[in-house]
Every structure is written in structure tokens, then in C-alpha cells.
């Protein structure tokens, strides 16, 4: 008896909706619990009580809590998170303008983590207890323990002192004509429009922020890859292939690598959460002007509508990232695709 992959996927999607529902409820309750009247924040200290009351009515704050929440969910599903209490513009518009910058940074960071840590993990496992292993382990401990803002500042200092040509602030050289659409991701858009100057500039600007953001993930994923490789090395199936003279490199790079990528990929999904968290700070250091630094500002200014939207959007991407990883894992591991009954 076997379970259908489509069924499994459907289960995941329902779980996805459940997570979003719980997240929205939690952030809604938190926003109503924290001290401070949204209407008062929106109008500032000089507004009269009369004005504040009118504002409350306009924002629907007089309705019962459950109705407010239902209203919030209903509009949220349609992409309407209300107006920013500070700027007065639609929060969704503000986020839509800033999101691509962050997405670009995060995607490049994820690719960087995979590109560096999987090979490093394989090498440290293969040459276990050699100097390569020791250096790799030192590197990953530093990566895991040092906070990313410290890396960000260190990289900026290094660049400023030794690599004066390299940009350390912003997303791109803003004096260039930036391509218009379709994704908002500069690397993709510039390729679509064939604008290699913008592509180069965007790539250069990405190097340091993504490095700072990737360090923690690299440290963790390297260690997990290493221990998965070492664990599987001892398994009988490796001995089977060895007994029949299948070359070491084939065993390591084909058989072990695929099997050992399951654990780091799973962790990668969880890592996504801390990646968004760290992006809040790294974006600030590099004046990235993305969604994460928008979130940080909203928090500091108590812009509750914006904060709620930022949390929900981050949550959405976290869940989507994990969904993607689930699919990748199902492709890699047949045991997930054809789950035996019981």
C-alpha cells in the first residue's frame, strides 16, 4: 500500500494554511495587547481626543475584537494590510516596493550557503581530523558564534580600507539607469534587459551583505553535512560498494552526497527564519533599503499595521521556503514519496 505524492503535497498545503492562520492570530493579539493606541500613534501627540476618536472609528477599532480579526484576515487574504500609521500610505504598496531587494539578498545568500557549505562539509568529512577538517571546523564555529552584524561591520571596514573600489552601501550604483521590471530582482531584470552594467554593479553590491548574512548558515550547514557524511560512511551500503571496488570518489560524491544532503536541506528550511531575522540588521548596516530594514523601522516607530504585515509576509516566505524544500526532499528521497502504510 503506498501513499500518493500528490496526497502528501496536499497535506503539506493544508498544514501551510494552518500555520498562516495561527501566525495571523498571534500577531493580531500581540498588536492589540501592546500598549499604545494605533489611532493615537497615527495622529501624533498634538491631535485632540476628538480627532483620535474619529480616527478609531475610521480604522474600525470600535468593532468587537473577533470582528476586527475576521475583517483583518479577510482583507489580508486580498493583500490589504491597511495604511501605515506613520506614512499613511498602503502598507502593501510600501512592502511591494521593498520586498524584491530583500528577496534578492536572501536568495543569493541561500545559494552562497549551499555553494560553500556542502563542499566544505564533504571535504571536512572526507579528510576527517586532518588540517582541512580542523580549519573547516574552526571556520564553522566562528560562523555560528559571531553575530552577523559584526561580520557586516567587519566586512565594511575591510572593504573600506583595502578594497576601495568595492561598494559597501546600497543595492546598486543608483546613477545607472535601472531596468524596469518584470521581477524587481535586479540580477534577473538586468539579464532580461541585457543590461550587463547594472548586473555587474548589482552583483558587486551583493557580495558583502550576502557574505555577512551567509556566515551563520554556512557554519551550521557545514557541520551538519559533515556529521551526516561521517554517519553514513559507516553504513553497510558503503561497505557493499567498497567490497566490489566501486571507486571512492563515486561513493563519496554520488552515493554519500545525495544521502547526506537530506539533513542539511531540512535544516536549511529552518535556517530561513534566522536568515530573515539577521537580514533586519544586515540591511541596516549596508543601507540596503529592503523589506527587513522597513520592518525594523516599523517596530521602532510602533507602526503596528506595518509590523503585522512584515511578520505575516516573512512568515509566508518561511513557509513557502519550507514547502519548496519538502518538494526537493521528496525528489531526493523515494522513501518520502512512497510512504509505506504503517
Amino acid at each position: 500500500m503506498q501513499t500518493n505524492p500528490a496526497q502528501l503535497m496536499l497535506k503539506r498545503l493544508v498544514g501551510f494554511a494552518g500555520v498562516m492562520f495561527v501566525l495571523s492570530a498571534m500577531i493580531f493579539i500581540l498588536a492589540r495587547i501592546v500598549p499604545g493606541d494605533p489611532a493615537r500613534i497615527a495622529l501624533g501627540p498634538s491631535a485632540t481626543q476628538q480627532q483620535v476618536e474619529e480616527m478609531r472609528l475610521e480604522m474600525g477599532l470600535d468593532a468587537p475584537l473577533w470582528q476586527q480579526y475576521a475583517d483583518y484576515v479577510w482583507r489580508g487574504v486580498q493583500g490589504d494590510f491597511g495604511k501605515s500609521l506613520i506614512s499613511g500610505r498602503q502598507v502593501s504598496d510600501e512592502i511591494a516596493a521593498l520586498l524584491p531587494a530583500t528577496l534578492e539578498l536572501v536568495i543569493v545568500t541561500v545559494l552562497l550557503i549551499i555553494a560553500v557549505s556542502i563542499p566544505l562539509g564533504v571535504m571536512t568529512a572526507r579528510y576527517r581530523n586532518s588540517w582541512i577538517d580542523n580549519a573547516g571546523r574552526f571556520f564553522s564555529i566562528v560562523g555560528v558564534t559571531m553575530p552577523s552584524f559584526l561580520f557586516a561591520i567587519l566586512l565594511q571596514l575591510i572593504a573600506a580600507n583595502f578594497l576601495s573600489d568595492w561598494p559597501v552601501l546600497g543595492r546598486v550604483n543608483y546613477s545607472l539607469d535601472l531596468p524596469d521590471g518584470p521581477t524587481g530582482l535586479l540580477l534577473v531584470d538586468s539579464v532580461v534587459h541585457g543590461d550587463w552594467q547594472v548586473f555587474r554593479s548589482a552583483l558587486q553590491h551583493l557580495i558583502f551583505p550576502s557574505m555577512a548574512l551567509a556566515m551563520a548558515g554556512i557554519g551550521q550547514i557545514t557541520r551538519i553535512t559533515r556529521s551526516a557524511m561521517i554517519e553514513h560512511q559507516r553504513r553497510d551500503h558503503v561497505l557493499t560498494l567498497k567490497s566490489f571496488g566501486v571507486p571512492d570518489r563515486v561513493i563519496v560524491f554520488r552515493y554519500l552526497l545525495k544521502l547526506s544532503s537530506i539533513a542539511p536541506l531540512t535544516i536549511m528550511g529552518l535556517e530561513f527564519a534566522s536568515l530573515i531575522g539577521n537580514a533586519f540588521v544586515v540591511e541596516l548596516v549596508f543601507s540596503w533599503g529592503g523589506f527587513a530594514s522597513y520592518g525594523l523601522e516599523s517596530i521602532l516607530q510602533k507602526d503596528l499595521n506595518a509590523v503585522m504585515a512584515v511578520v505575516l509576509v516573512s512568515g509566508f516566505f518561511f513557509v513557502v521556503a519550507n514547502l519548496v524544500i519538502d518538494i526537493v526532499l521528496m525528489v531526493i528521497d523515494p522513501r518520502l514519496r512512497f510512504k509505506e502504510a504503517n
Binding site: H237, T240, L259, I332
Partner: peptide
Amino acid sequence: SIIMQDPLSSFNPVF
């Protein structure tokens, strides 16, 4: 050639 002992663990499960 060797005939391995444990048929359940002697194959890589993802291949």
C-alpha cells in the same frame, strides 16, 4: 565476491 549480511541496510536508500 562477498554476499553481504543484512539485506535491509546494504543498499543506499535514495538510489
